[in-house]
């Protein structure tokens, strides 16, 4: 048999332990319990149970749940923390790079032009440049003098 079945006042006794009974019920039950062989042990067991809960050790998460929750809320909302604004380029940020690039390009064109002007290739007529397709390519030895004068020079 359970204590509940044995004692018809278990609800009231439970409330008495919890200090949730109002007068005059509280006083009347307390008086009854002192002389009742059924209710007295039930009340004692309820009180013992309460004491055993008091002995339970404190437990803590051991981590900062607030920061974990905040990160998850930010992720749900699609907000990165710390909140960063989209990067906008300013002219003073790109100016030096643009100037450097332009100078490099100009220097390259200048040097390239100077090399081209100094070379023989540009000075040669178009027909002479096609000499690669003649019977004797440029740089080859002439078997006879006329063979190298195919252009009529």
């Amino acid at each position: 048999m359970s204590p509940e079945e044995k004692c018809p006042r278990s609800e009231a006794l439970s409330a008495l332990v919890d200090n949730e009974l109002l007068e005059p019920d509280r006083g009347a039950l307390a008086t009854h319990v002192t002389g009742c062989p059924i209710c007295a042990p039930v009340l004692a067991e309820f009180k013992q149970l309460r004491d055993s809960f008091v002995a339970l050790p404190e437990v803590a998460a051991g981590v900062d749940i607030a920061s974990l929750v905040d990160r998850r809320i930010a992720a749900i909302a699609g907000i990165a923390k710390p909140q960063s604004r989209p990067q906008r380029w300013r002219w003073w940020q790109v100016g030096p790079a643009a100037l450097g690039g332009a100078l490099s390009l100009s220097l390259g064109v200048y040097l390239g032009s100077a090399l081209m002007l100094g070379s023989q290739v540009t000075a040669q007529p178009a027909a002479l440049q096609m000499a690669a397709f003649t019977a004797i390519p440029p740089g080859a030895l002439c078997p006879v003098l006329q063979a190298c004068n195919s252009m009529g020079h």
């Binding site: 359970s2 509940e4 278990s10 439970s14 919890d18 949730e20 309820f46 149970l49």
Partner: peptide
């Protein structure tokens, strides 16, 4: 709440 608490206590004692 009152009745369920009493039942819970009785169950634990059991």
């Amino acid at each position: 709440v009152k009745s369920r608490l009493a039942r819970a206590r009785a169950a634990l004692i059991e």
